[in-house]
Amino acid sequence: MEIAVFATFALLALASALMVVSHRNPVYSTMSLVVTLLSLAALFVLLGAPLLAVLQVLVYTGAILVLFLFVIMLLNVGREAPSGGTAKGQKIGAIVTAGAFGALVASLLWGRFVGFEVAPLTAEYVELQPLARALMSKYLLPFEMVGLLLLAAVIAATVLARRDQGSGGNRVG
């Protein structure tokens, strides 16, 4: 049963992730990413971390990807025109990324092989109250720094968006 659920959602995640990068229409790519993230949420539940799964759905599928779609629709990006070739650094980038990913997987497998155990998730990472306590005490500084980073991004975005108003009078949009 467990393996069947895992296989279903793992395959779904992989297939939709492939679709994200291969589809020509950005809306389809975004919707495939929705499927990928929902499948990952299902896998989180399977791993015994339902809180992570719910947060993933709430934050990524419920908010961030909706904004993706919003931007795509606002800019009215149509079907991507088939480009003549690949961009210059694209191949190198792909190789480096694939290599890094391969090394990560290999190190995990190697760790299993030589008997190095990966520590299982503790309550501090998966349960609501321990997680909240840890964020507010042990990890308070990084937590606040992330908050500051997001605030800086918001301010930067606002400044960029307002730049026109000084010179352009009350021109709209």
């Binding site: 947060l55 779609l69 609501l128």
Partner: peptide
């Protein structure tokens, strides 16, 4: 009967916007 009931409710409810977005697009 899940521990994250209210969050799950909000998470599922937040998916409703996709229907409107996709219908319009």
């Amino acid at each position: 009967d899940v521990d994250t009931g209210a969050l799950l409710f909000l998470a599922l409810a937040s998916l409703g916007v996709y229907s409107l977005v996709l219908a319009g697009y």
